[in-house]
Design a protein around this nucleic acid. Structure first.
Lengths: 148, 148
DNA sequence: GCTTCATGTAACTTCAATAGTTATGAATCG
DNA sequence: CGATTCATAACTATTGAAGTTACATGAAGC
């Protein structure tokens, strides 16, 4: 399957939105992301359902962030997207009768569970405001580099 | 993408092979795995290229383990399979010009790198002999349960 | 009210990689 | 020789995100 880049996409979109005051349309965001407005609406729709953003139709409409940047963690965004599978590798059969396969599954499941727990914990620690702060530092560094 | 279950498959196959003395044919293994002999050959071929198993044609041919069960770790098997991508989630664009996207990628990359390091470390700790030992315990427990 | 702008959504096609299938060739052993 | 078994090519099937097209809906401005 293609790799799921929706978490990356919504982060990219939210950071652009956070840098502005006015709502951004699906078309605006699509240009930033290099994709299609429909894809933006489809993906951002999950965040709307989770109460993280709101969308308005008509003139001056578009998408705006409704939650506090300090409280939006990557974990919340992942959850809002429906907790998609994180791993591309998995068991052949999730509920096998074969005792050998049960043994294999148990070993793999434990390793994957530990890695998933770590990943989700990290996601829980990182908020949107962390990312906007990191972006500001990167931007300042870029300006300094260009105009010494 | 469909989930990659090749690591699970080869573990299942290797454990069945470890429980026997004689080689197992692709057809034998395909029955154990509930798949096709060609899929078995294709997947086991990676392990043969890595020197973990050998295959013989003709009568009494088939697949046999050539390495020491104590030395074959899940990590080695994962490597033998070509180190397939472990995560189903990733960045939208791996080398973006957009500073916002670079910020997003950096955050995600770090979290994924940590989780991947943990997963590969766990894979490195688990050997085939660990699994055969676990299987024996499960088998003994099953017998005890059935015939008290 | 009409036009324009914007989202909402359905209904596709495309894409990428494993899994599965069919067919054929080649080697080994009795 | 002939049965067995692997080796491999060349497909199709599967799966879910991504991308596209089309049209309906609702809000703002005139």
């Amino acid at each position: 399957m293609k790799r799921d880049s929706r978490l990356s996409s919504v982060l990219h979109a939210l950071l652009h939105m956070a840098e502005r005051e006015v709502p951004m349309t699906s078309g605006d965001l699509a240009k930033c992301l290099g994709t299609n407005p429909v894809v933006v609406r489809r993906t951002m729709g999950f965040l709307r359902d989770a109460g993280i953003v709101a969308s308005d139709r008509g003139h001056a409409g578009g998408w705006r962030i409704t939650a506090d940047l300090n409280t939006i963690s990557l974990r919340q965004l992942h959850d809002a997207l429906g907790e998609p599978a994180l791993f591309a590798v998995g068991n052949r059969n999730e509920a096998p009768e074969c005792l050998v396969e049960q043994t294999v599954n148990a070993a793999l499941d434990q390793s994957f569970a530990e890695a998933e727990a770590l990943l989700l914990a990290r996601f829980g620690e990182i908020t949107l405001s962390d990312l906007t702060a990191d972006f500001s530092m990167r931007y300042a560094a870029l300006l300094k580099q260009k105009e010494p």
